[in-house]
């Protein structure tokens, strides 16, 4: 399967890329790692007339870890994120999620922003962004900079709030201050590295007595977008996360999922997986040594 013909321009600057996106609108598509877009083009599910290559723009690459948030350029490669020790200490859920993303060959090339912009409801990085309530920074020629929370960015399968002329330029990942931060990510897929049938993620912060002081959790693959449950997470705060509490919260979250059915799994099985996986990540994070050595 070959992609339909298109014109190609390597952007020389972010302004150049934004000019092209403004001029050609829906006909143009930014390409970064291409690990989602190129397969879509090969299957003719995407047929952009113009590809604007933003791979070689240094302004869109790299990570700056600050005390409250880690700012990541949208074209930072997944593999670079996986290997960044400072980022791992600041936002541990990222490496936990990336352990499930594709394979070495795809993570070497795939970018964090690309995965978010593609917005597959089963993908791991969109789930991590929703769980942690990351902020996505979009830029366009006419509108300047626009900042959206992950919850407002993901609208439906493969549909985001990004306008045609907008380019996702950065992601701000909240950094949880203080000791006792732990996280876990689990999923079930046909093959390790494939998109999840169901996925669950959490990040929690425990005090010295093992009481949960802060929590965030969510499910992937069981609705049109990743789901985060701040109200259920709040129920964990001030309590020890034991088996029964984890079970209750996991069941409450799974009950709110809206999974679809396909040849691999029906909706009921996906909802079952969601509850099992969420219970499992909560208990694993609660029992794991906080901020394990790298």
């Amino acid at each position: 399967m070959k992609a339909a013909p298109f014109a190609y321009v390597r952007a020389e600057s972010l302004d150049h890329a934004l000019d092209l996106l403004a001029a050609y609108g829906g006909e143009a598509k930014p390409i970064a790692g291409g690990q989602s877009l190129v397969p879509m083009m090969a299957m003719r599910l995407a047929r952009p007339a113009l590809l604007v290559d933003i791979n070689r723009l240094p302004a869109l690459k790299g990570v700056a870890v600050g005390p409250r948030c880690a700012v990541m350029g949208a074209t930072t490669r997944q593999r670079a994120v996986e290997e960044d020790a400072a980022l791992h200490r600041a936002v541990p859920l990222l490496r936990a999620a990336l352990a499930w993303v594709g394979h070495v060959q795809t993570r070497n090339r795939g970018t964090v922003g690309g995965s978010l912009a593609h917005a597959d409801p089963s993908a791991e990085l969109p789930l991590a962004a929703c769980v942690l309530d990351a902020t996505l920074v979009l830029q366009s020629r006419a509108g300047g900079e626009r900042r959206l929370s992950a919850a407002d960015f993901f609208l439906a399968p493969m549909v985001t709030a990004a306008e045609e002329a907008e380019c996702l330029t950065a992601i701000e990942w909240p950094v949880w201050e203080g000791p006792g931060v732990a996280c876990a990510f689990e999923e079930v897929a046909i093959r390790h590295g494939d998109f999840a049938m169901a996925a669950a993620a959490c990040q929690i912060q425990l005090d010295a007595d093992g009481v949960c002081r802060r929590a965030a959790l969510g499910l992937g693959g069981v609705a049109g977008t990743p789901l985060a449950f701040p109200d259920l997470a709040a129920q964990l705060e001030g309590r020890r996360i034991h088996e029964r509490l984890a079970q209750e919260v996991a069941e409450a979250a799974a009950a709110r999922s809206e999974p679809g059915s396909d040849t691999h799994a029906d909706a009921e099985y996906r909802r079952h997986l969601a509850a099992v996986l969420l219970r499992r990540v909560l208990l694993r994070a609660a029992g794991a040594p906080a901020r394990a050595p790298i």
Binding site: R10, V38, R79, R109
Partner: peptide
């Protein structure tokens, strides 16, 4: 497969393994 599943087309790009079916030649200039 030509869409990033099978890995048969793997090559090293700047020393790192990537799938050559999920890259356009122009991107590698």
């Amino acid at each position: 497969c030509e869409h990033g599943i099978c890995g048969a087309c793997s090559v090293l790009l700047e020393g790192e393994p990537v799938r050559a079916c999920c890259l356009f030649a122009l991107q590698v200039e």
